[in-house]
């Protein structure tokens, strides 16, 4: 037996879960798919006193379309995202990114909310949420607030969530028709965490001028990054091999606190960030309609 001892509770409603979390304070941890939390428990890197299992709460695992927005409940399994026809059609970037998250058995258990709340700097979903300008719906015993993705990811494994708060849903504005999209990453094997990754959305006019660019990098810094300088440099410019190469080079300059570990040095990740940013921009440009 690996994990240290902890208590376990299985609330049947969101209110019950929130009440339990507020009574027990920071020693109580929400348990979603367990695909990040249970490894931490097995390695004894986390020692919560109580796990609050979110899996038995009704209504947290729905995918819904509301005027121009796709809303995913926090407990939607990653595998369900991958298979969802609505998501494939309206937010193909999310569907494609999901296939890069771990392996099928991980995605069968892992959830959308768990990945966002865990905020691994190399994870795909946080970067996708940033690129898509998603909004995160957060609830506590005292009420609800909505946090834009750009304010949610604070640092390494750290989000804007306070103890006692739960992420309940993510709202994704559906990109307008014709938006080009791409996600590119470099990983050791399929399904491993990215050593460098980029997610891109692009819109262009009839003459190939860039109207809108969103570029998010992951796997390279302590948190996913929107690289606004590169986005601004592209906007209003013709999308050419040259302008794309320049934007990719500029994107790397946004990396303020580079990640460096046994899997990849900071220098390697930075070089690769430029490569994936360029590839993603090129691919999104090919997919963009006018």
């Amino acid at each position: 037996m690996k994990p240290p001892p902890f208590g376990y509770t299985r609330p049947r409603s969101l209110d019950e879960a929130l009440a339990t979390l507020s009574t027990h304070g920071p020693d109580a941890r929400p348990l979603a798919g367990g695909q990040s939390l249970i490894p931490l428990l097995n390695l004894r890197l986390a020692r919560p006193s109580l796990l609050v299992d979110l899996a038995f709460i009704p209504g947290l695992a729905d995918v819904q379309a509301e005027n121009g927005t796709v809303v995913l409940g926090a407990m939607v399994r990653q595998r369900a995202v991958e298979r969802d026809a609505l998501i494939a059609q309206r937010v193909p970037l999310l569907a494609e990114a999901t296939r890069l998250v771990g392996h099928p058995p991980i995605r069968n258990r892992g959830t959308v909310g768990g990945s966002l709340a865990h905020a691994d700097p190399s994870a795909e979903y946080p970067a996708i949420a940033l690129a898509l300008d998603a909004e995160l719906v957060v609830r506590s015993a005292s009420g609800e607030r909505v946090v834009p993705a750009r304010d949610f990811f604070v640092d390494l494994f750290t989000t804007a969530l306070a103890p006692g708060e739960l992420l309940t849903a993510v709202r994704i504005p559906v990109p307008p028709p014709g938006t080009g999209w791409a996600i590119q990453e470099i990983a050791r094997r399929h399904g491993d965490f990215a050593l460098a990754g980029a997610a891109v959305l692009l819109r262009k006019t009839g003459d190939g001028t860039c109207e809108h660019a969103a570029i998010a990098l992951f796997g390279v810094a302590t948190r996913p990054l929107r690289v606004t300088a590169a986005e601004h440099a592209l906007t209003g410019q013709p999308l050419t091999a040259e302008s794309i190469r320049e934007a990719a080079a500029l994107a790397v300059e946004a990396i303020d606190e580079p990640l460096s570990d046994v899997h990849g040095s900071a220098a390697y990740r930075q070089r690769m960030a430029e490569v994936v940013a360029r590839r993603a921009l090129e691919e999104a440009n090919r997919r963009a309609g006018t």
Binding site: Y8, R10, L31, G34, Q35, I38, P39, N42, L51, D53, A55, F56, R79, P104, P105, I106, N108, R109
Partner: peptide, 17 residues
């Protein structure tokens, strides 16, 4: 588990209720 392949080292027995 319910027809889907999962890691049994990353699931607690209590979650298999």
């Amino acid at each position: 588990v319910d027809g889907a392949a999962v890691r049994s080292c990353l699931m607690l027995a209590v979650q298999a209720e």
